[in-house]
């Protein structure tokens, strides 16, 4: 690695240079999310055949699984930025973590609610206190706790540190969610897709699920980059650079 590239990264890590970059990237990720959502809905609702066992109720999978994946993935990314902000004391890392939390909570809520709506026709109950569902509910409370702790502390830098510690402690819950269906005898089924074995589902169903997962991924990036601009503007409003940037680019 040349020293040049290291310098470029640290320059990019300042809110002043990241703000215009985020602004430029949002439309691209948003457009990718929209195209992938349209393709995923078409595959999931029209192309994919009715399931032999579950009928059409299984089509909830195209919302449920991407939402559940994102709920865990966003938490890990959020915890990563919290670790970076604690280690290097960088403001942008804390701002990114702050920007990810509401979207992570939104996907967790969707995973829980669509899971309940799928559970009723599949298992005969909306809810059971099994390990997968309980640990996913704990994930929702971790997101809420993170956001509540941030909002409770007036000094943003102290809020960064306190909420980062909470997020890092809570990250132990993610592997518990993921492996819960193996470690405990749960009502929830095991993984349909894994890296170590062939998928246990039809190719069109798998394709639709993966396309919707990518759509959710690009949406999460777009909305986080939009929210981080608001957070930067809120937190840096007393600096001269943001005052120069906002009227000019608006």
């Amino acid at each position: 690695m040349r020293p040049m590239s290291a310098i470029a990264w640290f320059k990019l890590a300042s809110p002043a240079s990241f703000f215009p970059l985020a602004r430029r990237l949002v439309p691209w990720f948003g457009a990718a999310a929209a195209v992938l959502t349209a393709a995923g809905l078409w595959i999931g609702l029209i192309v994919a055949p009715t399931d032999a066992q579950q009928g059409d109720a299984y089509r909830i999978i195209f919302i449920h699984v991407p939402a559940a994946w994102m709920s865990m993935f966003i938490y890990v990314v959020m915890a990563f930025w919290c670790a970076v902000s604690l280690t290097f004391n960088t403001r942008l890392a804390a701002m990114l973590a702050q920007a990810l939390a509401p979207t992570g909570a939104m996907f967790t809520f969707l995973a829980l609610v669509t899971g309940a709506l799928w559970g009723k026709p599949a298992w005969g109950t909306y809810w059971a206190w099994d390990a997968r569902m309980t640990s996913e509910l704990i994930l929702l409370f971790l997101y809420f706790g993170y956001m509540a702790l941030r909002n409770a502390i007036d000094d943003p830098r102290r809020a960064d540190r306190a909420s980062a510690v909470l997020a890092l402690v809570g990250v132990v819950n993610v592997p518990i969610i993921y492996f819960s269906v193996k470690w405990w005898n749960t009502l929830h089924q095991g993984a349909s897709v894994s890296l170590t074995s062939a998928p246990t589902m039809a190719v069109t169903m798998l394709t639709g699920m993966l396309v919707m997962a990518f759509a959710a991924w690009f949406y999460a990036i777009a909305i986080t980059l939009l929210r981080v601009q608001a957070i930067i503007a809120e937190r840096e409003k007393n600096t001269s650079w943001i005052g120069e940037m906002v009227p000019r680019t608006r």
Binding site: G55, D56, A57, V113, K120
Partner: peptide, 15 residues
């Protein structure tokens, strides 16, 4: 949706 319309469409609408 083969009788599962309520569950499927409520999921999609909430999302």
């Amino acid at each position: 949706m083969g009788g599962y319309g309520f569950y499927v469409w409520t999921s999609y609408a909430l999302a």
